Simulated assay, not measured.
Amino acid sequence: MKFIPSVLLLLFAATFLCIWLLDRRNRHLLLFALAFLTISAATVVQFALWPADVGYNTIACAVLYSAAPLFLVQGVLMRSGKSMARAEQALWFGGIVAILTFFYYVHNDLAVRVYALNFGMGGILLSGAWKLRHLVLGNVVDRGMLWLLLGLGATFVGRTLLTGGTVPSRDVDAFFQSAFWVWAQFAMSVLGVAMGLALVVVACADVILALKAERDSDPMTGLLNRRGLQGKTQRLFAKGVGKPLSIVACDIDRFKSINDSFGHAGGDVVLSSLARVIKSKLRAGDIAARTGGEEFVIVLKDAPVDDAFGLVETLRREIANVRFAGMPGDFAVTCSFGIAKLHAGEGLWDAIGRADKVLYAAKRAGRNRTFAEGLQLPHAA
Rank of each mutant, 00 (worst) to 15 (best):
136 V>S: 14
118 N>T: 01
85 A>N: 09
93 F>Q: 06
126 L>W: 03
117 L>N: 11
137 L>S: 12
95 G>N: 11
151 G>Y: 05
59 I>E: 08
120 G>F: 02
119 F>E: 05
155 T>N: 13
101 T>E: 10
54 V>M: 14
116 A>V: 02
133 R>D: 10
83 S>G: 12
133 R>V: 08
137 L>P: 02
157 V>E: 09
89 Q>F: 13
170 R>P: 05
158 G>Y: 08
129 A>M: 10
135 L>M: 05
165 G>I: 10
108 N>K: 13
134 H>T: 14
54 V>N: 13
75 G>M: 05
68 A>I: 02
94 G>V: 03
51 P>L: 12
124 I>H: 00
112 V>S: 01
75 G>P: 08
135 L>T: 01
68 A>S: 14
141 V>C: 02
67 A>P: 13
101 T>V: 11
96 I>V: 15
100 L>Q: 15
134 H>Y: 07
142 D>G: 14
111 A>D: 01
85 A>Y: 09
122 G>Y: 00
81 G>F: 12
69 P>I: 01
138 G>M: 03
169 S>N: 10
64 L>A: 09
120 G>S: 01
160 T>H: 04
131 K>T: 04
94 G>T: 09
106 V>P: 00
93 F>I: 12
61 C>W: 13
101 T>C: 15
108 N>W: 08
95 G>C: 07
86 R>Y: 12
116 A>Y: 01
127 S>Y: 01
55 G>L: 04
82 K>L: 15
83 S>I: 05
166 T>L: 01
90 A>W: 06
152 L>A: 15
49 L>A: 13
149 L>A: 15
129 A>I: 06
56 Y>L: 14
156 F>L: 09
117 L>D: 11
154 A>N: 00
110 L>W: 04
51 P>V: 10
140 V>L: 14
145 M>Y: 06
61 C>D: 10
168 P>I: 07
107 H>L: 15
63 V>W: 14
135 L>F: 08
98 A>K: 05
122 G>C: 06
98 A>E: 11
76 V>I: 14
161 L>A: 02
131 K>R: 12
60 A>H: 07
87 A>S: 15
170 R>G: 07
119 F>N: 06
168 P>V: 08
172 V>G: 05
66 S>M: 10
65 Y>M: 13
79 R>Q: 10
141 V>P: 00
125 L>V: 04
102 F>A: 08
81 G>T: 07
151 G>R: 07
57 N>C: 12
51 P>M: 08
143 R>D: 00
175 F>S: 08
71 F>P: 04
63 V>G: 10
135 L>E: 07
132 L>M: 13
161 L>C: 04
155 T>Y: 11
70 L>V: 06
166 T>K: 04
104 Y>C: 05
60 A>C: 13
156 F>T: 06
53 D>Y: 04
94 G>K: 03
102 F>V: 11
170 R>S: 14
94 G>S: 09
95 G>H: 13
62 A>G: 05
175 F>A: 09
118 N>S: 04
177 Q>G: 10
108 N>H: 14
81 G>K: 07
70 L>I: 09
80 S>Y: 07
115 Y>T: 02
70 L>G: 02
156 F>W: 10
174 A>E: 04
87 A>F: 15
51 P>R: 00
49 L>E: 12
173 D>Y: 12
65 Y>F: 15
106 V>E: 08
173 D>V: 13
